[in-house]
Design a protein around this nucleic acid. Sequence first.
DNA 1: GATTGATCATGT
DNA 2: ACATGATCAATC
Length: 231
Amino acid sequence: MASVSPFAPSAPASEVELVARARTLAGLRLGELAARLGRPVPPDLRRAKGFVGQLVELGLGATAGSRAGPDFAHLGIELKTLPVDASGRPVESTFVCTISLPDVGDLEWENSPVRAKLARVLFVPVEGERERPVGERRLGAPLVWSPNVEEERDLKFDWDELAGRIGRGDVESITGHLGRYLQVRPKAADSHARRRAFDGDGVAFAALPRGFYLRAVFTARIVRTHYALAR
DNA sequence: GATTGATCATGT
DNA sequence: ACATGATCAATC
């Protein structure tokens, strides 16, 4: 990482410094940021789905790489780039975390990995329309977010339904249609991937790996609420 | 047009 | 193998 990008910054020392740094990137095109960091820009994202997130990580001095845990471990902050359309509306769902199928049923919301992951998030909006060439997409103004009371209540509601269903051994009954703001969808190399799970009788079976995602309506609400309050 | 299920690259 | 970063593309 740092070895291939001599101009990448070191880790920010505080949340204030991180946000200040992110603000300096606002308005920049991805091509400009990539050039600064000595990174090539892919022609499209079909074979480089993580490009935007990884570029911004590098540009902000994130430390985690592909290790588990927050991007800025010492600050307890998770970085999420948020693809948006011309009006600032998110165009994709946001991945939160994978699901440990044997464990999820025993976890209350308060101890859930979803709550932990979303406790403090730095959202960096990025123009995400497919027609726009990757290098020309601009970064937006960052937003540091923690769930407010309503947001947390809504996430807990979905967690209770989804985690409860998995805990009862009904993971195979879950589709992306469930959950108003938080949903469960496949998260795997392909549809043949399998990992160990348990059915309602405690009998092990092989299940498609899945993850929790925030629906775009939820991140849209975050953007509306929190940017509006900041104005 | 929005959404779900499938998929891709890289690093540990 | 599995976790990180997500977007693609078939389908509703």
